[in-house]
Design a protein around this nucleic acid. Sequence first.
DNA 1: TTACTTCACGTTAAATTGACGCAATCAAAT
DNA 2: ATTTGATTGCGTCAATTTAACGTGAAGTAA
Lengths: 228, 228
Amino acid sequence: MKRFHEYKNPSLAVDLVVFGYHNNTLSVLLLNRKEAPFRDCWTLPGGFLQMEETFLYTCSRILQTKLGMDGVFLEQLYSFDDPDRDPRGRVIAVGYYALINPAKFQVVAGSMANDVKWFNVRKLPVLGFDHKQIFQQALQRLKSKILYYPVGFELLDDLFTITELHELYECILHTTIDRRNFRRKILDAEYVINTGMKREGLKNRHPELYKFNKQLKKNNFQINISTE
Amino acid sequence: MKRFHEYKNPSLAVDLVVFGYHNNTLSVLLLNRKEAPFRDCWTLPGGFLQMEETFLYTCSRILQTKLGMDGVFLEQLYSFDDPDRDPRGRVIAVGYYALINPAKFQVVAGSMANDVKWFNVRKLPVLGFDHKQIFQQALQRLKSKILYYPVGFELLDDLFTITELHELYECILHTTIDRRNFRRKILDAEYVINTGMKREGLKNRHPELYKFNKQLKKNNFQINISTE
DNA sequence: TTACTTCACGTTAAATTGACGCAATCAAAT
DNA sequence: ATTTGATTGCGTCAATTTAACGTGAAGTAA
């Protein structure tokens, strides 16, 4: 019996939407390609699946070797299968998105890229391949996910203030949320634990520092905000 | 330059969770395999992706040729990539689920299967491969989806009563929902349009027949029921 | 001390939900 | 013809949740 992988099969790749949050801005990490196709174009980081790898492993490998990142939140998005999505041939891409705290990593362009840069998600350049579509799906997923699942803290420092969490939500959802109602929701849901410490060195009143509540029953909370 | 598909790549398959609703029961279509592996075991219908096909096309082809179904609701679920999920070699499966009205189709076992049968989703036999996992993810997706997106009608006849829709929701969510509150929600959301006709031949009061409102702003409604 | 800003905690009206009540409608039994 | 028993369609109301906003405390800078 002929083994399956001796037939011709499409290639398999993962494409990564790496979100970072810094200075009140949600950003995405893009590579400037050194080689055709889409030479000198901005694209999502990605790479091919090796025969023995899982997708998650491929993602980690890419994050590690191309971007020097480790131990980050990763979630599968969707599989993109347009036969013409890659001019080199049939490549099926499985999209993943990652949430990282840019303060924890220093990104460097690997050998495949001219440049690696953070781009504000509202000011993206033209992307190669079908990466615009993958990005949009990732952003949409993130927007819905933070409303019913505590992932926001993945983008922040270990200790954060309610105001910082509030600003993160406003930034991701691209809307305004009442400060006081937000605080109440987050505290009622036991999303966070008060550490008793305060953030020092600010111009005004020093806010309390919280950490994420790891014991949180994850589907116990829901923030009702119209995703517009 | 070597073309990508001349490298060895994992095989790609789709596996289908076909939901049907009949006699107040949510069912799933399973095949009894004629050949190894998992000979004489029940599995989800599935098949390999041809080089030029999209996943959706593969799904349609399988539904058409193996099950005689056409023009059904299909949605991608997730990609399953455990290297050992198929004893024949590396096969990556993209899960899809379908919603069909069993009254519209007569399923027949194709050449690959000993038998094709509907199984109550609460009384499934042991499944081959990782199909239990794929099924569970599909059921979970369906349960959350019907709360914020109008897909329930895909499982019903073109004309249906509110009570029938209500029973469908209770069956899928596996819980009880207050009849009168459910009615109000569905009507307020403009989920359905009253046709003025009534279902005749019943023992008691003849209920009004509705059809799905195709003009519905799809994210305009939300049924709040604890998915437990 | 005063001015100014942010933080933490309340308050209140409006909207929504959950739990029922009840009359109208139908077929079958009396 | 009337009663019985079930389902359907519409309504009520208390309890809960949400949205919008007030205010004093805590901090820095003038």
